[in-house]
Design a protein around this nucleic acid. Structure first.
Length: 567
RNA sequence: CGGGGCGUAGCGCAGCCUGGUAGCGCACCUGCCUUGGGCGCAGGGGGUCGUGAGUUCGAAUCUCGCCGCCCCGACCA
């Protein structure tokens, strides 16, 4: 294509409202423009890149026998009510009414619709297994869209769904997807890791996330490079660092002491001269209107995900100050488990075996010392703690790392949640009605693009892997007014196209600096510069990554690029 | 949902405090010039100052409402 005819609106300056690097560069390089909060126009370059990503996904999905479909983005409420997720999804689901006041929503994912298809059509074990997928726009009303294409309200997702007769079949489907996803992300040129993950509102047992490490990410993963441990922070387990001070000896009795104005763990630590690890942190959480007192070592963080799992309840939230006052007769900051009998008391296992610790006295401005779990209060033990960097792997003792990541893919073993609730049944060999077992598997298409930009860029712009770059090569005559350069560039461009490359001819009447800057910014992997060396039959082949340059013969230029792109 | 910031030409910004007919850089158009890293010179076009109301002789500027966007927080008491 000829650059002079294309719409590639590059910007000299960073857009004012962009914060993360991929957002700045995608806007500057003319890939995207914002339409509203978390809503983006994908311009020509983004669309080309996305098309390449989708083509890779399609090939690898088809390779595992998946069948592509296209389901509606607009869904009637009924299917979501059947699965129970009409309520579960809460504010995150876009909802609307039609002219007859019927409830509809915009699909966030398509378990319900896929299951609805399956239950209407699948009758026999002979029809299983099935792998169905689509590449479709999803809508999620994010409370806070941000970071360019990384957290948006409308995005493209490849989502697939599997139906199997038994757990063994699901294992195979899950494994096929795992392998396919690795191939897809490898081919897209991404560096990624897969981690054990939490299933969230999807339901189901096992799941793994595919994550790209970068600063702009909002998910945290815990990695043990040597042991190979990898888990989402929500799921991760570890051994905590030891307490900073030994507990006092003896069977001491709890003793109240005055702590005026000391509310936080840090304030109490400073006041008592004892480390945070000597305190019991008391957090009041509620779910389904019922309170629970959660106890942790002073320096530890509560994992809401783990707590939700332990409570087996719906949404968990911190109690409001008024609720706390009602239940405890004291404000947050002076709370503790001693004498609490009106709610569940859960204690993190890191407190097991500890004694004579400090906690709030349930009386404003007072704390208790010499409090021993199990003796001075009863509790249910559970893993409630969120892992932190520097803690150690449970088996190997290796120090664990915590990294920010972006989730680009997620595979779930759903189990029977949807097939059961929506009434999907088939007959087995013996004529008995059985419920198929399901899996679901997603890939965030734009996130592949934006995380690639996060991963691969330099001061001059984007450095996309060739597989997902909008063009493979740009042919740039230094002076397009020079007939010899213009002709040679045109010829090389034609040869590139004939060689199967996605080629771009920069035939704009611009100074060379402008053309070089633009080519660097948008991240075309190779540039053939036709300039003064043309007199000697040579042109320059420059690799965007690392700016390595070599002189090649005019006649061999296209072939040289073709060899490097490795189609 | 809480807090903060911003909204003036396509983009980035100044002007607002202290009210008096809207400006800079880039981009764009025309001409000349130039051609190996966002050239140079000259001329030119483009803005209901987010929106509605109010104060005033007069509002981009002051007051109030609304809308939009960005950032921080929304469990760690």
């Amino acid at each position: 294509m000829r650059w002079s005819k294309l719409f590639i609106p590059t910007l000299r300056e960073d857009p004012a409202d962009a914060e993360v690097i991929s957002h700045k560069l995608l806007v500057r390089a003319g890939y995207i423009r914002q339409l509203g909060a978390g809503i983006y126009n994908y311009l020509f370059l983004a669309q080309r890149s996305i098309n390449k990503i989708i083509a890779i996904i399609r090939q690898e999905m088809d390779a595992i026998g998946a069948q592509e479909m296209y389901l509606p983005g607009l869904n009637p409420a009924e299917v979501w009510q059947e699965s129970g997720r009409w309520d579960v999804m809460g504010q995150n689901m876009f909802r609307l009414k039609d002219r007859f006041q019927r409830d509809l929503c915009l699909g966030m994912t398509h378990e319900e619709v896929m299951t609805a298809i399956a239950r209407g059509e699948l009758r026999s074990y002979k029809q299983l297994p099935q792998i169905w997928y689509q590449i479709q726009t999803k809508f999620r009303d994010e409370p806070r869209p941000k970071s360019g294409l990384l957290r948006v309200r409308q995005f493209i997702m490849k989502d697939s769904y599997t139906f199997d007769m038994d757990a063994g079949g699901l294992d195979r489907a899950y494994d096929l997807h795992y392998q396919a996803y690795c191939k897809i992300f490898d081919r897209c040129g991404l560096e990624y890791t897969s981690v054990e993950a939490h299933s969230g509102s999807m339901g189901g047992s096992q799941s793994r996330e595919f994550m790209v490490r970068c600063e702009a990410g909002e998910d945290y993963v815990v990695l043990g490079p040597k042991s190979g441990y990898s888990a989402n922070l929500e799921m991760a387990v570890s051994n905590p660092v030891p307490a900073a001070a030994p507990d006092p000896d003896g069977e001491l009795a709890p003793e109240e002491f005055h702590t005026p104005g000391r509310k936080t763990i840090a304030e109490v630590a400073a006041f008592t001269g004892l480390p945070e690890t000597s305190q019991i942190k008391s957090l009041v959480m509620t779910s389904d209107g019922k309170p629970a007192l959660c106890l942790l070592r002073g320096d530890h963080q509560l994992s809401e995900t783990k707590l939700t799992g332990v409570l087996g309840a719906g949404e968990v939230r911190p109690a409001h100050p008024e609720e706390i006052r009602d239940w405890f007769g004291a404000g947050a900051g002076s709370l503790g488990p001693v004498g609490v009998s009106n709610m569940r008391v859960l204690a993190d296992t890191a407190l097991q075996g500890r004694r004579n610790m400090i906690c709030g006295a349930n009386r404003d401005d007072y704390h208790l010392r010499n409090v021993t779990p199990g003796k001075d209060f009863q509790c249910q033990w559970a893993d409630l703690r969120q892992v932190a960097a520097g803690e150690t792997h449970r088996e190997t003792g290796e120090t664990l790392e915590v990294h920010k990541t972006v989730e680009i893919g997620h595979i779930f073993k759903l189990g029977y949640k949807y097939s059961e609730s929506m009434g999907l049944r088939v007959l087995d060999e013996s004529g008995k009605e059985v419920t198929p077992i399901m899996g679901s598997y997603g890939i965030g298409v734009e996130r592949i693009l934006s995380s690639a930009v996060e991963l691969y860029h330099d001061k001059d712009g984007i450095v996309l892997p060739a597989a997902i770059a909008p063009f493979d090569v740009v042919v740039t005559p230094v002076n397009n007014a020079d007939a010899a350069q213009r002709e040679a560039a045109g010829r090389i461009y034609a040869e590139c196209k004939a060689a199967g490359l996605d080629a771009l001819l920069d035939d704009r009447d611009e100074r060379p600096g402008v053309k070089f800057k633009d080519a660097d910014l948008i991240g075309i992997p190779y540039r053939i510069t036709v300039g003064k060396k043309l007199a000697g039959g040579q042109v320059e082949l420059v690799e965007r990554k690392g700016k390595k340059s070599q002189d090649v013969a005019v006649d061999g230029a296209a072939e040289a690029v073709r060899g490097m792109v490795a189609l």
